[in-house]
Write a protein that binds this DNA or RNA. Structure first.
Length: 656
RNA sequence: GCUGCUGUAGCACAGUCGGUAGUGCGUCACAUUGGUAAUGUGGAGGUCACGGGUCCGAUUCCCGUCAGCAGCUCCA
């Protein structure tokens, strides 16, 4: 048969050959690094015998797919190590993941010391270099095989497979055999660099009613340097973590007696949020045609009964007077929708008034489970740039496009447009009772959003079960420093709310008609966006966002008066400036200004005072030289107004 | 909500095998009046998260609560 290789060259063999043999035939080095094969685009085990004409690609740890096999083997080694140190532990599952691999065990929790011991054991196993062998059993024999080994989770997995399935296993030496579809390395010896990262609890099959298992996370790479680099990146990610950095930079704090998920914004964090908020409100009102509302933060339960939240979202709401005999039951609002609907209904609207775009800087309350809160990204009270657009069905496409455009503009201005991905969030057709509306409604609205994204050339993924209970969403997702994804912005189409609330407009014929509604955010939630900005910029924000934009550093007390004068002039020009009055040496003050991640600091002394100058330094360019105050103000005003994102020069350049 | 870990000064951390606590940075005072990444000296600051229990005595041991972290689950 003829084997076509990746580079287009071909090899002919008279008899069937395995992938690994072909790899050896091509190059010994390649064979040693081989992790799997890709035959006609399908990833297969190295032991797979090829007996017909195919295209073959030998995968190594440098390929994403090859790396998965490599890491998967690593998870088997981990499992063997666990079985050696804790023979009573029961194995569940152990796949490879984006960042490495994990394996779940039914056993006592693992401490860091346990992980270290396991790492040592794994190294031993790797050194022993057992060959991985593959074999298959019919289903009932496979069940028996795992029953004998007292692995109930494996038995359950096998029983879920079809009756006629051939069940494949991999064994490594005498010690360990696992149910596994593969592919795998030929020998444990090929594992060069791995590390056990952490352990935690996980439920069997992700179900909180089922057994609690102990999960060990690890990672592995083809080369030691890659592992070192990855671990370093992980350390750097920790340094950017908004939950650590935001507190350190005094942007927010939390207090035990105030409660979980209720961050307090300190003066600096508040300043940043206000800068964002003023920008967004002006942008929406002046340039994108929104009108602003201000509606109550709570309402009687009756409102949520109409909206459907009472039935679909009760657990997520803070309910007031719940057990009271004589007081009305109220709830803090988890969204603004119905409040704005009533603003719309306050007067009769013609089709000529539409689209009617209502925006609100809206504070919401959601009763998240206690374990869900995290820093600024999952909180119980937050404020979003919310809007509801009431429109005729014919206007929907243009309005949805405008919403996407606005978000893109906002992301771009913040400098984080490269961090986001789009998702079409659909209902879960297997869980219909969680949603309002029927198949037809969901098919129609989902396809509508899909078409809008396709028409606007937006790349997106589709996911079931991520919709709002009343309609599908276009979600703009972003990953945090650890790779965990959050929704930043959401755009939702709702063709059902108007009916429920009795909203209408008068159409061209003078008849009442049902509008469609878009629920959307533009920048999303301020708390989450701030978290994202902290991580994206590692605390070194664009100047316009900085809570302290310029610090004036007098050389000595003699120049304090002049320093104050400079500060006042900056403040008068809407530049956030302070003076460092401490009787410290100038070098010390500069160091602190740098460590506080200031964009600009100016030094004032005898020379500057005499000529009305400031000596400007920035974290972007280092020493920028002496400038007239007015020129410096003009430069900064321009930078702030245009929301310029200056890039930082490397250290050597700055010191020139 | 679940599992595990954690909680000592503003911050980073020591420490007490049960006898009410230290270091560094910061802060404050004084001296110093300086030119682009750390001037010196001295002082203040803690009911050791909170509430119970055991004990002559608890920050330390035990239980509970609250909060933080990791993960699971959840996320309109």
């Amino acid at each position: 048969m003829k084997i076509t290789l990746k580079d287009g060259s071909t090899k002919e063999y008279a008899e069937a050959k395995s992938v690994i043999d072909i790899a050896f035939d091509i190059a010994e080095g390649l064979a040693r690094n081989a992790c799997a094969g890709e035959v006609d685009g399908e990833v297969v085990d190295l032991r797979t015998v090829i007996d017909k004409d195919v295209t073959l690609n030998i995968l190594t740890a440098n390929d994403e797919k090859g790396l998965a096999a490599y890491r998967h083997t690593c998870s088997h080694v981990l499992a063997e190590a666990v079985k050696r140190l804790r023979p009573e532990a029961k194995c569940a599952i152990g796949p490879s993941i984006d960042t490495g691999f994990y394996y779940d065990f039914d056993t006592e929790p693992f401490s860091r010391d346990d992980l270290d011991a396991l790492e040592a054991e794994m190294k031993k196993i790797i050194k022993e270099g057992a060959k991985l062998e593959k074999f298959e059993l019919p289903r009932d024999e496979a069940v028996k095989f795992m029953e004998e080994r007292q692995e109930p989770y494996k038995v359950e997995l096998i029983k879920d497979l079809p009756d006629d399935a051939k069940i494949s296993f991999y064994s490594q030496g005498e010690g360990f055999t696992d149910l596994c579809a593969g592919p795998h390395l030929m020998s444990t010896k090929s594992i060069k660099a791995f590390k056990l990262i952490s352990s935690s609890m996980a439920y069997w099959r992700g179900d909180s009613n089922k057994a609690r298992l102990q999960r060990i996370y690890g990672t592995a790479f083809g080369k030691k340097e890659e592992l070192t680099e990855y671990l370093q990146k992980l350390e750097e990610a920790k340094m950017r973590d908004h939950n650590r950095l935001g507190r350190e930079m005094k942007l927010f704090t939390t207090v035990d007696v105030i409660g979980q998920g209720l961050p307090l914004f300190t003066p600096k964090g508040t300043k940043m949020i206000m800068k964002l908020q003023r920008w967004m409100e002006d942008l929406e009102d002046k340039e994108w045609g929104y009108i602003r509302t201000r509606t109550p933060l709570m309402a009687k339960s009756d409102l949520y009964k109409i909206s459907g939240h009472w039935d679909h979202y009760m657990d997520g709401m803070f309910i007031l007077n719940k057990d009271s005999e004589d007081k009305e039951v109220m709830a803090l609002r988890p969204m603004t929708c119905p409040f704005q609907y009533f603003v719309y209904m306050n007067e009769q609207h013609s089709y000529r008034d539409l689209p009617y775009r209502m925006a609100e800087t809206s504070t919401l309350f959601r009763n998240e489970d206690s374990g869900e809160m995290h820093g600024l990204t999952r909180v119980r009270q937050f404020t979003i740039t919310e809007a509801h657009i009431v429109m005729t069905p014919a206007q929907a496409e243009e309005e949805l496009t405008r919403c996407v455009d606005l978000c893109n503009y906002v992301m771009k201005t913040l400098g984080i447009d490269g961090d986001v991905t789009y998702r079409l969030s659909k209902w879960d057709p297997n869980n219909k009772e969680k949603y309002l509306g029927d198949n037809e409604y969901w098919d129609k609205t989902q396809d509508y959003l899909r078409q809008v994204m396709i028409k606007n050339n937006i790349k997106f993924t589709e996911e079931d079960g991520e919709a709002a209970f009343y309609g599908p969403k276009i979600d703009i997702q972003a990953k945090n420093v650890y790779g965990k994804e959050d929704t930043m912005v959401t755009i939702q189409l709702d063709c059902a709310a108007a009916e429920k609330f009795g909203m209408y407009y008068i159409d061209e014929k003078g008849e009442k008609a049902r509008p469609w509604i878009i629920h959307r955010t533009s920048m999303g939630c301020y708390e989450r966006t701030l978290a994202w900005l902290i991580e994206h910029y590692a605390g070194k924000f664009p100047t316009w966002l900085c809570p302290e934009q310029v610090r004036v550093l007098p050389i000595s007390e003699k120049y304090e008066e002049y320093a104050e004068k400079v500060k006042k002039e900056l403040l008068a020009n809407d530049i956030d400036a302070t003076v460092d009055h401490r009787s410290e040496k100038i070098g010390f003050k500069i160091r602190e200004a740098r460590m506080d991640r200031l964009p600009y600091w100016v030094i004032v002394g005898e020379q500057e005072e005499a000529d009305g100058l400031v000596s400007v330094s920035s974290r972007f360019a280092g020493n920028e030289g002496q400038k007239r105050i007015a020129d410096f103000i003009a430069q900064l005003t321009d930078e702030i107004k245009n929301k310029t994102i200056r890039t930082e020069l490397p250290m050597e350049e700055k010191n020139k």
